[in-house]
């Protein structure tokens, strides 16, 4: 809190010794933050390092000792990708995640537009229903949807999981995007209407282009949500050859619990895409997650 006060003082030239004293005054803070950073980084770094260590080394020394030996290999990755079918699982995850992101993004944008700029009977009541649906846990859908999908064969394709992910993503997407669409300038939309634009035209040429950041935040949130999902895949993907990475890795753990080299490489492959998204699109990602806190 004193930091806030200090920043108010106009900066003047400081000597090196003054800077050192200032830094030392904060030593307890730096130490505490160093410990925090260590606790949050060490487990992940451990997994990363382990994934590159030869199997024989993993069994006899800890990953923290590997910097002395300095023997690293890509063998774990090639074994898990080809031998354990993780490449197929990676592709399956993509095949599940991309449609399960694009469809809800498109549909939620349309519905959110209706709820924010169109006028129809029971609009506010229906929106309250959407807000209520936000809290429905996926568990209530398992039994009825399994029964519904069983005769259609959708459980042996990705149809079932696409539809279920989409439906459960819609309330949140509609809620988030409607709240954003409402903040768009009314004059702009009224002017377009007077100029003769159709509702579809206004949606396509004004609402969507002006809302790209919000739509992107929702899209990234949804993509990572589906990418990281295990539960829906357990229930709605029944063909083992179509399992996503989360299920493949859980399977790896329950079958070969002590094959650490495979687990580490597999888990890191699962983390790779979210980490890339996180580092490249951090701003949207954090914003999407914050907004997603209502989900």
């Amino acid at each position: 809190m004193t930091a806030v006060a200090e920043e108010q003082v106009p900066a003047r030239e400081r000597t090196t010794s003054e800077r050192i004293v200032r830094f030392l005054n904060k030593t307890p803070i730096h130490v505490a933050l160093g410990i925090i950073a260590l606790i949050w980084l060490a487990p992940t770094i451990g997994l990363f390092v382990t994934s590159f260590r030869p199997r024989s080394d993993i069994q006899v020394t800890g990953w923290w000792e590997s910097f002395l030996q300095f023997r690293f290999t890509l063998a774990n990755y090639s074994e898990v990708l080809s031998g354990q079918g993780m490449l197929q699982a990676f592709i399956n995850t993509l095949l599940i995640a991309v449609p399960s992101t694009l469809i809800p993004v498109a549909l939620a944008s349309m519905a959110a537009y209706a709820f924010s700029w169109l006028h129809f009977p029971f609009r506010d009541g229906l929106f309250l229903l959407v807000v209520a649906l936000l809290m429905i846990p996926v568990q209530v859908a398992f039994i009825p949807l399994l029964k519904l999908f069983a005769p259609t064969g959708l459980l042996n394709s990705y149809g079932a999981i696409w539809l279920t992910h989409t439906a459960f993503a819609l309330p949140f997407g509609i809620f988030l995007l409607r709240n954003f669409f409402i903040t768009l300038p009314r004059d702009l939309i009224e002017a377009a209407r007077i100029d003769g634009s159709s509702t579809i035209g206004i949606f396509r040429t004004i609402v969507v282009p002006l809302s790209v950041p919000a739509i992107a935040a929702y899209g990234i949130f949804q993509f990572l949500w589906v990418w990281n999902d295990l539960l829906m895949a357990l229930v709605f993907v029944q063909d083992g050859s179509q399992w996503p990475m989360t299920k493949a890795i859980q399977n790896l753990l329950s079958q070969y619990g002590t094959e650490w080299h495979l687990l580490a490489a597999g888990a890191f492959l699962l983390m790779a895409v979210p980490l890339i998204v996180f580092f490249s699109l951090q701003r949207y990602f954090v914003q999407g997650l914050l907004a997603g806190s209502v989900k």
Binding site: M110, A111, L118, A141, L163, T166, L170
Partner: peptide, 28 residues
């Protein structure tokens, strides 16, 4: 007046939520 194109925007998402959220909740 009410917008006639509402159904175009709300039809599919509404149907999906009805079939995959509301109906299962009542069923369960």
């Amino acid at each position: 007046r009410y917008d006639k194109s509402t159904l175009l925007f709300l039809g599919v998402p509404g149907l999906l939520m009805a079939v995959f959220l509301v109906y299962p909740t009542i069923y369960t």
